[in-house]
Simulated scan of single mutants.
Amino acid sequence: MTPGARTQAAIELLDQIVAAAASGGAAADTLIARYFATRRYAGSKDRRAVRELVYAAIRHAGPVPSSGRAAMLAVADQDPAIAATFDGSAHGPAPISADEPRAEAGVAPAWLGEALTASGLDTARQSALVERAPLDVRVNSLATTRAAVLEEWPDADPAPHAPLGIRLPNGTPVEQSELYRAGLVEVQDEGSQLVGDALAAKPGEWLVDLCAGAGGKTLQLAAAMENQGALLACDIDRARLQRLAPRAERAGATIIESRLLNPGQETEMLSDWAAKADGVLIDAPCSGTGTWRRNPEARWRLTPERLTRLTAMQVQVLEIGARLVKPGGRLVYIVCSLLDAEGAEQVAAFLSRHSGWSVEPSGPAIATPHGSGRRLDPATHGTDGFFVACLRAPC
Score class of each variant (00 low, 15 high):
390 C>S: 15
330 R>A: 13
385 G>D: 05
364 P>I: 04
387 F>V: 11
372 S>V: 00
346 Q>Y: 07
306 R>I: 00
352 S>V: 06
322 A>S: 15
320 I>A: 09
344 A>P: 02
336 C>M: 11
367 A>E: 09
324 L>I: 08
312 A>M: 13
373 G>S: 14
345 E>F: 00
368 T>E: 15
376 L>F: 09
387 F>L: 01
370 H>S: 07
334 I>C: 06
302 L>R: 14
311 T>W: 02
361 P>A: 15
391 L>G: 11
369 P>C: 14
370 H>F: 01
362 S>F: 08
313 M>E: 14
370 H>E: 08
323 R>Q: 14
341 A>Y: 03
327 P>V: 03
380 T>D: 05
335 V>T: 15
356 G>A: 06
363 G>R: 11
323 R>L: 02
331 L>V: 13
303 T>H: 10
309 R>W: 01
300 W>F: 01
330 R>S: 14
357 W>F: 07
327 P>I: 11
333 Y>G: 08
315 V>I: 02
315 V>C: 01
319 E>T: 13
341 A>V: 08
321 G>W: 08
353 R>K: 15
392 R>S: 06
326 K>D: 04
355 S>F: 00
325 V>E: 11
355 S>I: 01
356 G>L: 02
349 A>V: 01
356 G>R: 10
301 R>E: 05
348 A>E: 15
342 E>K: 06
313 M>K: 15
354 H>Y: 14
373 G>A: 10
320 I>P: 09
352 S>A: 15
343 G>R: 07
370 H>Y: 03
311 T>L: 06
383 T>L: 04
374 R>K: 15
363 G>M: 11
327 P>S: 03
310 L>I: 14
328 G>S: 12
355 S>P: 03
335 V>E: 07
354 H>D: 08
303 T>Q: 11
384 D>I: 04
386 F>Q: 02
305 E>I: 07
374 R>G: 02
381 H>M: 03
375 R>N: 00
379 A>H: 14
354 H>Q: 15
387 F>W: 02
349 A>N: 12
299 R>G: 01
331 L>I: 09
321 G>D: 06
371 G>I: 02
302 L>Y: 04
327 P>K: 12
363 G>D: 03
324 L>F: 13
297 E>V: 04
365 A>M: 09
346 Q>K: 14
320 I>T: 15
324 L>A: 04
342 E>V: 05
298 A>L: 01
372 S>I: 00
302 L>D: 06
318 L>D: 13
359 V>Y: 02
347 V>P: 13
330 R>F: 01
320 I>M: 07
364 P>D: 08
388 V>K: 07
301 R>I: 05
328 G>M: 10
320 I>Y: 13
347 V>N: 12
386 F>R: 10
339 L>W: 10
374 R>A: 12
346 Q>E: 06
350 F>E: 08
366 I>V: 15
324 L>S: 13
372 S>G: 09
306 R>H: 10
351 L>Y: 12
386 F>E: 03
330 R>M: 09
346 Q>A: 14
317 V>N: 01
348 A>W: 00
368 T>P: 00
379 A>S: 11
379 A>G: 00
